[in-house]
């Protein structure tokens, strides 16, 4: 099904990507081209076929409940967490004020 510019803008809003009217117009054509092409999948008979869950047979492993066992996946590294922050203050990340 073809999408219109209003849909393009709605998707852009869901994806949090600001989009100009010109870009929305250009993207309308591109997205319709791609979506029209992938829609050929609809012709495949998938009766009784399960969606792929694991591409290679493998079991989900569970981790032991241990704090900071590996520094790469543990806490207590605030400096590293905040090192690249655009606005870090008093140990927090700063964002424009949110009104809930």
């Amino acid at each position: 099904m073809a999408i219109d510019q209003a849909t393009v803008r709605k998707i852009a809003s869901l994806a949090r990507i600001a989009i100009s009217d010109a870009d929305a117009a250009a993207m309308e054509g591109e997205l319709n081209g791609i979506l029209g092409w992938v829609e050929q999948l609809g012709e495949v008979d998938v009766t009784g076929v399960e969606p792929m869950t694991a591409v290679i047979p493998n079991k989900l492993r569970l981790r032991d409940d241990v704090i900071d066992a590996d520094p790469l996946t543990g806490g207590n590294r605030r400096d590293d967490i905040l090192a690249n922050a655009p606005a870090a203050q008093h140990g927090f990340f700063g964002v424009p004020k949110v009104i809930e």
């Binding site: 997205l31 999948l41 609809g42 495949v44 998938v46 399960e50």
Partner: peptide
């Protein structure tokens, strides 16, 4: 990102994503 957002969005998920994962199984 736009394509991905669209195919996962309400009302389209099964037609696109679930169908694609089934074809992937095939």
């Amino acid at each position: 990102i736009m394509i991905g957002t669209y195919v996962l969005s309400a009302g389209f998920y099964d037609a696109y994503y679930t169908q694609a994962q089934k074809v992937r199984t095939l």
